[in-house]
């Protein structure tokens, strides 16, 4: 690892992975079928592994995960959105895993400080993306109810997708340039699923799309409280 770690970028990517990992973990005991529960837990575990590497590049992983306040987190607002129904979770997975897969492929091809992690994670994320795409097809092209729910979810989360392509200091890759490939890939899946590509803006009112700057949506604070309370209640405890 090089001497100068781009801390801002490591935190941004690490927080994305950590927060989505926690959200997916909330499905444990609630998923529609056992296989899906196992799948979501495995995806969460992959993301947690990536988060541990990324946060450790920026500092002490436990302190960063458990002792920072809401405003210090720089994750995308997309990944902190509540799980909603299963369609919302899948729409979030489709949007984010496509982005993460394209981004890691780009980082793995370079020789920057994230190349080693990205070369591993790109292969893990390929499975996450495949999982999300398969479910989008099944739900979009399924029953009237599943189609309607998937359509509602894709539209509801669309306004959080623009933030993914804002520049991140020290990342060493042009995130704006990923947007074309992302739109093509997500658009192709949605069309195959018989779902319309949402037409609204990819970022909403003043707060939407400011997660990288530490501005988060209201449910994030409650998620953090649950995620952090054990560590804060029992400082230094171990199993």
């Amino acid at each position: 690892m090089t001497a100068t770690v781009p801390v801002t970028a490591a935190l941004a990517l690490g927080d994305d992975a950590l927060v989505l990992s926690h959200r997916l973990g909330e499905w444990m005991g609630h998923a529609p079928v056992l296989e899906e529960e196992v799948a979501l837990a495995n995806i969460a575990l992959d993301l947690l592994g990536q988060a541990r590497v990324l946060l450790s590049m920026a500092g002490d992983e436990d302190e960063l995960a458990y002792l920072r306040e809401e405003r210090a987190f720089s994750n995308l607002q997309l990944v902190e959105q509540p799980n909603g129904d299963f369609a919302h979770t899948i729409a979030r997975q489709l949007y984010f895993s496509t982005y993460q897969h394209l981004l890691y492929a780009e980082l793995a091809a370079g020789d920057g400080p994230f190349a080693a992690l990205a070369a591993k994670a790109v292969k893990e994320t390929a499975y996450h993306r495949d999982h999300a795409e398969q479910w989008t097809l099944r739900l979009g092209d399924g029953t009237d109810l599943s189609h309607q729910r998937m359509r509602t979810a894709c539209t509801a989360l669309w306004r959080f997708t623009g933030e993914m392509f804002q520049p991140v200091e020290g990342l060493g890759t042009d995130l704006g340039a990923l947007r074309t490939g992302w739109l093509e890939a997500v658009g192709a899946v949605l069309r195959r699923a018989g779902l319309p590509v949402p037409e609204g803006a990819q970022s909403g009112a003043w707060t939407a799309g400011a997660g990288r700057q530490g501005l988060h949506t209201e449910p994030f604070g409650r998620m953090l409280a649950e995620m952090q309370h054990l560590h804060r209640s029992h400082p230094g405890a171990s199993w």
């Binding site: 296989e35 799948a39 893990e124 499975y127």
Partner: peptide
């Protein structure tokens, strides 16, 4: 293929269509 993810992250769950036994597949990475 029954599920892309199985008992651990590195495995997928499959079923044989001849003997009908489910089995783990160490998936390619």
């Amino acid at each position: 293929l029954l599920s892309r993810f199985s008992s651990t992250a590195c495995k997928a769950l499959r079923r044989c269509l001849a003997c009908r036994e489910p089995f783990d597949h160490f998936k390619e990475l």
